[in-house]
Amino acid sequence: MSGKSFTQEWWLQRISAAIIALYVLLLIALLLIYGAPSYSHWQSLFSNNAFKAFTLLALISTFYHGLIGVLHVWPDYVKNAMVSSALNAFSWLAAGGYALYAIYILFFLK
C-alpha cells in the first residue's frame, strides 16, 4: 500500500490513531469546559509552542492515518486500473498538500 510491510502499517495506523485521539479529546475537553473561544484565547492557545508542536504531530498523524485508510478503502470499490491509480495519486497528493499547508498555517502565518 504505502510500500511498508502490512505489520508495520497496522502498528503505525494504531499509533497515529492514539495520537489523534489524545489531541481530539483535549480539544473536546477544552470546548466543553470553556465553550467557544474568543479570538484572543484561540490565538494565544496556538502561539504556545508545546500546543503548536502537538498540533503539528496530530495533523501529520491525521494525514498519514487518512492516507493509509483511503489507500485500503479504494481497491474494495474501484477495480479499474486507471481509475485506481488516479485515486491513489490524488490521495498521496492530498496528504502531501495537507502537510505543507498545515506547516504553513502553524509556522509561517503573517
Binding site: W42, T62, F63, G66, L67, G69, Y101, I105
Partner: peptide, 25 residues
C-alpha cells in the same frame, strides 16, 4: 474516515482563517 480525509480540504482552510487575523476569525 473517508469523509474526514476529504473534509480536511474544508477544515484546514477553516483553521487558517481562524488564525490569520481577528477579522478572519
Amino acid at each position: 474516515g473517508v469523509a474526514l480525509f476529504v473534509g480536511l480540504i474544508v477544515l484546514l482552510p477553516m483553521l487558517h482563517m481562524s488564525l490569520k487575523s481577528e477579522a478572519g476569525f
